[in-house]
Nucleic acid binder design. Structure first.
Lengths: 230, 230
DNA sequence: AAGGCAAAAAGTGCATGCAATTGCCTTTCG
DNA sequence: CGAAAGGCAATTGCATGCACTTTTTGCCTT
């Protein structure tokens, strides 16, 4: 094969395809309901159909794409009901993570969480949406890791990535930035206090609010991407 | 292709392979750490390597097998730590399901749960381990469905199947059968009372106890399957 | 006799090719 | 004019083949 394996990160071709296609779905480049043609993808990434097929199979196992036998694959289209269920699960999962964090985080982890959280306050004052979004991701990631439970981490991280397409624009909502920080603050405070129940409750409520904030966008995205699907 | 597609249920060849291999892992025919040779599997199921490869990829995405690039695939070998984390997650997930059940189950669902649960009492008196195991599976499945949340259902069901290889023999433990029924009874009672918090607590404790009951077997299984891994 | 190196054997990774199914377009009949 | 049937193009599903990587084995050196 040609020495073309260059730019996309290392790993087998299949892994690269999983990442490449998965990223495009998670970041919204590929919209729910969009058809994923094997030959087009193969041409687009300059590989043969085989690794593309395998990647689609794995993405299907992850729930990011939907495969109709003999009829091709599409970006997974989630119903309103399933979406609500995912946000609900996310709230519960983050609640568990926060509770575990309160009970298990090491001193270093607590300090780092507090430090980063306080640093992000500046971004709120500046209204730096994109930078805040980065900190937000990092904040939640800290929560998942701080739970010290590899499987909870997996469940939470994959659920989060499946939700990613539906909450891209949440920080554009007026006042959402400051509100998000305050909600984070409630979580951090409870964790530092070692109050697992309060931390869990605060985290659940945080996600619930994000869920509502995202709902308005969901409808739009959905209508544009898959106008008819019944 | 030859008219050999007979016994295993319908679907594409890849789907059949996923089910076939996955079943063998979940039921313990293939033990953790066991090597999964592509050509052997292909020969065993009378298909070419391509669908086997795709199946292994999907099973890898589900966490049931582990793939080492250029070095073949093995049945996923979980560390003690990861196993504990999975049981812990399972306890939390079942807790959530039970809580949701208490809040959301329909009248029919509640009645069916109660009826089946009472029916299973007979099996305990008879000491019918295998039959009780079937009812047990059905009972938990009812809990997952009764939560009325498709995504929680998915998370719970896949976690349960990943744990399946490690808890096969739990009911062989003396007295475990009766104890299991009592724990189920606590869950059912709380659900019928509509007491979400109590139902969640009872379900969490139930899984925790199963976890401890299984631990002893885990060590054995593990030692036999992958004697050296550190 | 033990260690290391090299070559071969085994097994994985991907590309290509062919069969089969699907969807669409045309044709034909009511 | 509309609807059903038939054929064609496009696309998926799987098998096979070749290249590359890893592992093993046998020989040579020390």
């Amino acid at each position: 094969m040609s020495g073309k394996r260059s730019l996309i990160r290392a790993g087998t071709t299949v892994d690269q395809m999983v990442r490449a296609i998965g990223d495009r779905i998670v970041t919204g480049v590929l919209r729910p309901g969009e058809k994923l043609d094997e030959v087009s993808l193969a041409a687009r990434f300059e590989v043969s159909r085989t690794p593309v097929r395998e990647a689609l199979g794995q993405l299907s196992a992850m729930g990011l794409v939907e495969r109709r036998p003999n009829r091709g694959a599409i970006v997974a289209v989630v119903t309103q009901e399933h979406l609500a269920s995912m946000f609900e699960s996310m709230a519960e999962l983050e609640g568990i993570c926060a509770r575990f964090c309160a009970e298990r985080m090491t001193g270093n982890e607590r300090r780092a969480l507090e430090t980063e959280h306080q640093a992000s306050a500046r971004l709120v004052r500046l209204g730096a949406e994109e930078d805040y979004e980065y900190f937000n991701t990092e904040f939640h990631s800290r929560l998942y890791r701080g739970a010290h439970s590899t499987h909870i981490y997996e469940l939470t991280a994959t659920t989060r990535s499946r939700l990613a397409p539906f909450r891209r624009a949440q920080f554009r909502l007026a006042g959402r930035l400051a509100k998000s920080w305050q909600e984070h603050d409630a979580i951090v405070t409870a964790i530092l206090r070692g109050d697992g129940a309060a931390a869990g409750k605060a985290a659940r409520e945080h996600v619930s609010i994000v869920s509502e904030a995202s709902a308005v966008f969901v409808v739009d995205d959905h209508a544009r991407a898959a106008p008819l699907h019944s």
